[in-house]
């Protein structure tokens, strides 16, 4: 009897944790996109007002933002400063792969972030700011979608995990 009870508790807990985990991924995606959006706002002022060169601007962003957005900018800046003949896109892609590739919850946004790499450092101030504005717009859309998904699926997954666990226990016993 005790064995059955502890087995049932174990199954329900595992299922609840799994559901919670899936739900947390929706939350993390929203948080990460918010951080990236905030970074671009800061970058806009670094370029627009300070004309700060990109490696320095990325370094400043990297220090101020939370991971993984912070690490993405920091490591891109570090690759740029190495001065080993890498293009801005190559630096960005290297940092992106290192920080985002294994993050399941950002998979949908990876292609968007890859696209950003193509525009860094190209064109004059007006052109670069226009590109940053475009990136912001794309991120805003992705963020709206992520928020919607979180509202819709976040709660469902948490309950689904718990309910799934209970259902399995009922079937088994």
């Amino acid at each position: 009897m005790y064995l059955k009870l502890s087995g049932a508790i174990l199954i329900i807990t595992a299922a609840y944790l799994y559901g919670n985990n899936v739900s947390a991924a929706f939350r993390q995606r929203v948080r990460c996109l918010e951080e990236l959006l905030m970074s671009l706002e800061m970058l806009q002022s670094e370029i627009g007002h300070g004309l700060t060169p990109l490696p320095e601007a990325f370094l400043n962003l990297g220090k101020r933002m939370n991971d993984p957005a912070g690490s993405l900018f920091l490591e891109t800046a570090q690759y740029m400063k190495l001065n080993r003949g890498l293009s801005a896109r190559e630096c960005w892609m290297k940092a992106l792969k290192k920080n985002f590739l294994e993050m399941e919850y950002m998979k949908k946004d990876l292609h968007l972030l890859e696209r950003f790499g193509k525009v860094w450092g190209k064109g004059d101030k007006k052109g670069q700011l226009a590109q940053v504005a475009l990136m912001q717009e794309s991120l805003r859309q992705a963020l709206a979608e992520a928020r919607e998904e979180q509202a819709k699926n976040g709660k469902i997954w948490r309950y689904l995990g718990l309910m799934g666990g209970i259902t399995v226990v009922i079937f088994l016993f």
């Binding site: 370029i47 004309l51 700060t52 060169p53 990109l54 490696p55 740029m80 001065n83 003949g85 293009s87 801005a88 630096c91 860094w120 450092g121 190209k122 064109g123 004059d124 101030k125 052109g127 670069q128």
Partner: peptide
């Protein structure tokens, strides 16, 4: 050419208008 321009401008052509 693209890479050389990026390297000489420190990836920041906008800073050298």
């Amino acid at each position: 050419i693209e890479k050389t321009v990026e390297l000489i401008s420190g990836y920041s052509l906008y800073a050298y208008e």
